[in-house]
Every structure is written in structure tokens, then in C-alpha cells.
């Protein structure tokens, strides 16, 4: 996708959060939540972070990524299915009468700071 611009936005968020909290310690870890349907590639995020982080507040931080799954809820068979990719029919019964929930998260969950 466009992981460089996403990581740029991420580092801006980290800087802004530290300023708001008045924190000046070294950032040791960033926890991200990148949903399976977000279209964002975690390997590319790590690669882009390695390129962009040096010289910023986030330099040297470990990146921990959770990848929430999505659910396909089918109104035909009523069997909920966990999905990794966006589907257009129910993986269980093939019906198109479905709704997809979750999996689109793109969040900075937490920042760990060394005292």
C-alpha cells in the first residue's frame, strides 16, 4: 500500500503524544494494531520504520504489531466466520447476504518509555 506515509503519520503521532504527556524518556516500544482488512502490510511497516525512525523520537523503538481478525456475519446460515481477507460471500454457505465487522483498525495502541 503506502506504508511510508503511514509510518510518517505514526511517528508524528508518537511525537505529539509525548509532547502532550510531557514525556522526555527514550521510546522503547510501540504497540500497533493493524487489522487484517486494513490493506497495510506489516513487513512494509517495519521496513519503513527502519528507514524513517532514525533521528526522530521513535528511533530504536521495538515495533509490536497485533493483527485483529475480521468477522463475516451471514444472515442466511447465521454462522459467524473469522476471516483474514475481505470476502464477498459467506465462507460457510456461499450466500452473499453478509456483513463484515472489524479488521480495519490502524491504531497506535501504546508507547513504552524507559524511565
Amino acid at each position: 500500500m503506502h506504508e511510508l506515509s503511514i509510518v510518517e503519520a505514526l511517528i508524528d503521532q508518537v511525537r505529539e503524544t509525548l509532547e502532550q504527556e510531557g514525556e522526555k524518556g527514550r521510546v522503547s516500544k510501540l504497540e500497533l494494531s493493524i487489522g487484517r482488512l486494513s490493506g497495510v502490510c506489516c513487513d512494509s511497516v517495519r521496513f519503513a520504520f527502519g528507514l524513517l525512525a532514525p533521528g526522530t523520537v521513535a528511533e530504536g523503538a521495538e515495533i509490536v504489531i497485533q493483527q485483529p481478525k475480521a468477522a463475516c456475519n451471514c444472515r442466511a446460515c447465521n454462522v459467524p466466520t473469522e476471516i483474514d481477507d475481505l470476502v464477498i460471500e459467506c465462507p460457510n454457505c456461499g450466500s452473499g447476504d453478509i456483513s463484515i465487522e472489524g479488521g480495519r483498525e490502524l491504531l497506535l495502541q501504546s508507547i513504552d518509555i524507559e524511565e
Binding site: I6, A9, L106, L107, L108, S110, I113
Partner: peptide, 14 residues
């Protein structure tokens, strides 16, 4: 210490 942010990464764009 841990700061719980729970912020959208693309919040600025939104």
C-alpha cells in the same frame, strides 16, 4: 512506563 494512546494512525488525514 506505558502511555496508552489508542489513536488512529491516520487521524491527521481524517
Amino acid at each position: 512506563m506505558k502511555i496508552v494512546a489508542a489513536k488512529k494512525i491516520l487521524k491527521a488525514n481524517d
